[in-house]
Computed example of a mutant assay.
Amino acid sequence: MPAPYEKGSAKKGATLFKTRCAQCHTIEKGGPNKVGPNLHGVMSRHSGQVEGYSYTEANKRAGVEWSEQTMSDYLENPKKYIPGTKMAFGGLKKPKDRNDLVTYIKEASS
């Protein structure tokens, strides 16, 4: 069972985002889609919903509502959480890293 989300360090999360996410995602309002969709406003949105981004059917059908907990669970192992996703990221195994990253995504994407 995945670890429960606990608020982490947004500063450490920003570093993780730069090193692990930014090559494929933007997070600022109006940012472009890259290999992955722009993440602005991701919290409370459902999976597969960014305008102009080409999602897999698996991602569109998953119907995940992104919250701190669902994002943390997803980031542990994206291909296990949404089988058929095209996200090539292998996941963050350490709960602390996920907590920091999700804390940053929540702050930076709202």
Rank of each mutant, 00 (worst) to 15 (best):
M1A: 06
M1K: 14
P2K: 05
P2A: 13
A3W: 02
A3P: 03
A3S: 05
P4N: 09
Y5T: 04
E6A: 03
E6G: 08
K7C: 02
K11S: 09
K12A: 02
K12V: 04
G13H: 02
G13N: 12
G13M: 05
A14T: 00
A14F: 02
L16D: 00
L16N: 00
F17W: 06
T19C: 02
R20P: 06
R20N: 04
A22S: 02
Q23W: 10
C24N: 12
C24V: 01
H25P: 07
T26K: 04
T26V: 08
T26G: 02
T26W: 02
I27H: 10
E28M: 09
E28Y: 07
G30F: 02
G31W: 04
G31K: 04
P32S: 01
P32D: 06
K34F: 03
G36R: 06
G36H: 02
P37N: 10
P37K: 08
N38R: 03
N38I: 01
H40A: 08
H40F: 09
H40M: 07
H40K: 07
S44Y: 11
R45G: 14
R45Q: 15
H46K: 15
H46D: 15
H46T: 15
H46S: 11
S47A: 15
S47P: 13
Q49D: 08
V50E: 03
E51L: 13
Y53F: 11
S54N: 14
Y55G: 15
A58N: 07
A58W: 02
N59S: 14
N59P: 00
K60N: 14
K60R: 15
K60Y: 08
A62F: 08
G63T: 12
V64N: 08
V64T: 13
E65M: 11
W66K: 12
W66H: 06
W66Q: 05
W66C: 04
S67C: 07
S67P: 06
E68Q: 14
E68S: 14
E68M: 01
M71Q: 03
M71E: 01
D73I: 00
Y74Q: 00
Y74K: 00
Y74H: 03
L75P: 09
L75C: 11
N77E: 10
N77Q: 12
N77A: 14
P78R: 15
P78M: 14
P78Y: 07
K80E: 15
Y81W: 10
P83S: 09
P83I: 05
G84I: 10
T85P: 04
T85N: 13
K86N: 11
K86I: 13
K86V: 15
M87H: 07
A88K: 11
F89T: 00
F89H: 01
L92W: 04
L92S: 12
L92C: 13
K93I: 08
K93W: 04
K94Y: 11
K94E: 14
P95C: 13
K96R: 15
K96V: 09
K96D: 15
D97Q: 15
D97A: 13
R98H: 05
R98V: 03
N99E: 04
V102L: 09
T103F: 07
T103L: 06
T103W: 01
I105D: 07
I105T: 08
I105C: 12
K106S: 02
A108H: 00
